[in-house]
Write a protein that binds this DNA or RNA. Sequence first.
DNA 1: ACCTGAACACCGTTCAAGT
DNA 2: ACCTGAACACCGTTCAAGT
Lengths: 263, 263
Amino acid sequence: MTSPRARRSPRRTEALSRERIVEAAVGLLDAAGEGGLTFRALTERLATGPGAIYWHVANKGELLGAATEAVVAAAVATGPQRTGRAGGTEGAEGAEESGGAAEAAREGIRCVALGLFDAIEEHPWLAPQLAGQLSRNPGGPVAPRIFENIGRQVRALGVPGDSWFTATSALVHYVLGAAGQNAANTASGRALGPDADRAGFLDAVSTAWEGLDAEDYPFTRAVADQVREHDDREQFLAGIDLVLAGITALHLPAGRPGGSPEA
Amino acid sequence: MTSPRARRSPRRTEALSRERIVEAAVGLLDAAGEGGLTFRALTERLATGPGAIYWHVANKGELLGAATEAVVAAAVATGPQRTGRAGGTEGAEGAEESGGAAEAAREGIRCVALGLFDAIEEHPWLAPQLAGQLSRNPGGPVAPRIFENIGRQVRALGVPGDSWFTATSALVHYVLGAAGQNAANTASGRALGPDADRAGFLDAVSTAWEGLDAEDYPFTRAVADQVREHDDREQFLAGIDLVLAGITALHLPAGRPGGSPEA
DNA sequence: ACCTGAACACCGTTCAAGT
DNA sequence: ACCTGAACACCGTTCAAGT
């Protein structure tokens, strides 16, 4: 209007684009959760009006979907190179020793799963997004992306073709369920206070479970102390291994390429 | 009317209570999804003002939590008596034959899981609720209720105590992940049109997956037709059995009380 | 084509006031 | 104690109007 030059807004020009909008949306979601994503906060952050955003994006739902897709794509892309304990299996392609390829596939599954786990923990708003409206647009690329990455490793494991869908679905469902639950936990932990970050929250849950009615909740009470001491990632991987063991037992031919000694 | 004899007075008196409010909330959620729960719709349905509702309920979040708890409680309570294929194992308590108790425990797990599965399918708004803010109030009774019901059967299975938490967590996570994903699917199916109820939606997903890039999504494309033909409940139970097989392989003593002949 | 910004309908929540 | 209902701040979305 008045002066197209030099206004004290740090990023006045820069040209608005769908990519920049999605980027800003992810930033708002990370900073303040699902409630933090607002068209008004977005217009302020991007120094525009709502109409400009609606030119690039149909509505809030599509924006949430695009943010979800962006984060998931980044997560499964960088998954294999993570710094966590699930690295160092680059011999997967050439491995031909009995069970070597299968074990590499198992490591690959753990990698993809951990990538999603970390992404959901880093962006807790992802969990309900994936759980509640992932398939709002079934043609959308986020469901196939997860499915493809895990499914390839299932195939490499040696699972026969008619069990691919069952085995892959089970893994994906476990990953989404576990990671989602975990995100809910970390989110609540933050809400309790930034200092009592994680241990404090687990302690609160554990104490609450110990205080349950002894007659109605004997099992939950008995397990309460295991809640206090468990490690999230470790527990998550233990669950993955449980599903993998089930796949090995039910879907792998008797040759058990898993590498475990015959018993 | 004002007469106490009056049969079904849709509104008027009836005395407002927290229970009646939660009941109405579930009705609105079932009818129109999460967006259907509105204080204005609630006031109209209950013939009151918003202040009356706020007298019994702190805010919308608490109302959603109460609705979730009510539905989950009903689901796990009626689970064992369902009409589905997972009934008829009332001999669990007295069974002493080798493996009989363990197999009964497995059936019990399938029952509880199917109860939750059906509840989420019947109330699709439950899925993000359970995934995203189940542990918003960790002392709340919904997480322990699910955990307790599955955990007891895990104990009955013969899993040693120090694996209870791992095994039960894996089962719960799978159930929540699978049921949540399924609810998203059915919800999208309804959105596509009431006539193309379920098969039409699966067909759409299958076709979309077949149309994916051949180089980026070879596995997903190869599995597309299995998507079209699969049955939700069957697939869900197959996943349960996968996790159960993993628990048997990793956490059950060598005596394998599962009933399978020794090998 | 891309952007502006006032305006609209609707939402959760509050609160002085009633019984 | 329990309920009423106007009012408030905020939200997603639209659209005539500008460049």
